Computed example of a mutant assay.
Amino acid sequence: MRHTISVLVENKFGVLARVAGMFSGRGFNIDSLNVAPTHDAALSRITVVLKGDDSSLDLAIKQLRKLINVVEVTDFTKDQAVLRELLLVKVEADAKVRSEIMQICDIFRAKIVNVATHEVIIELTGDEGKVAAFLGLIEPFKVTELARTGQLALTR
Rank of each mutant, 00 (worst) to 15 (best):
L57Y: 08
I122Q: 02
Q63D: 14
F23L: 12
I122F: 08
A110P: 06
R18V: 04
V48C: 04
K111D: 15
Q63I: 00
V48K: 04
F23A: 04
D40G: 04
I121A: 11
R84T: 14
A41F: 08
G21W: 10
N11C: 00
K111G: 11
V120H: 05
L67M: 07
L87M: 09
E119P: 01
K51W: 11
G126P: 00
V48F: 02
H118I: 07
L50R: 05
A42T: 13
A17G: 15
S99Q: 13
R26E: 08
L124F: 08
K96Q: 15
R26Q: 09
T38E: 07
H118G: 13
F28W: 02
R45L: 11
Q103H: 14
T47E: 06
D58Q: 13
K90A: 11
G129Q: 06
M22E: 13
L86C: 02
L87F: 10
Q103D: 15
K66Y: 03
S32M: 08
E123H: 08
E100F: 04
T117G: 09
V71E: 10
Q80I: 05
V89N: 00
A41Q: 11
R65I: 01
S55Y: 03
P37K: 14
D53G: 09
L59I: 11
M102K: 13
V97H: 02
A81Y: 03
E123I: 03
N11A: 09
E123M: 08
V70W: 08
M102H: 10
V71H: 12
I46H: 01
T117Q: 09
E10R: 10
Q80P: 00
M102P: 03
S24T: 12
I121H: 01
G129L: 04
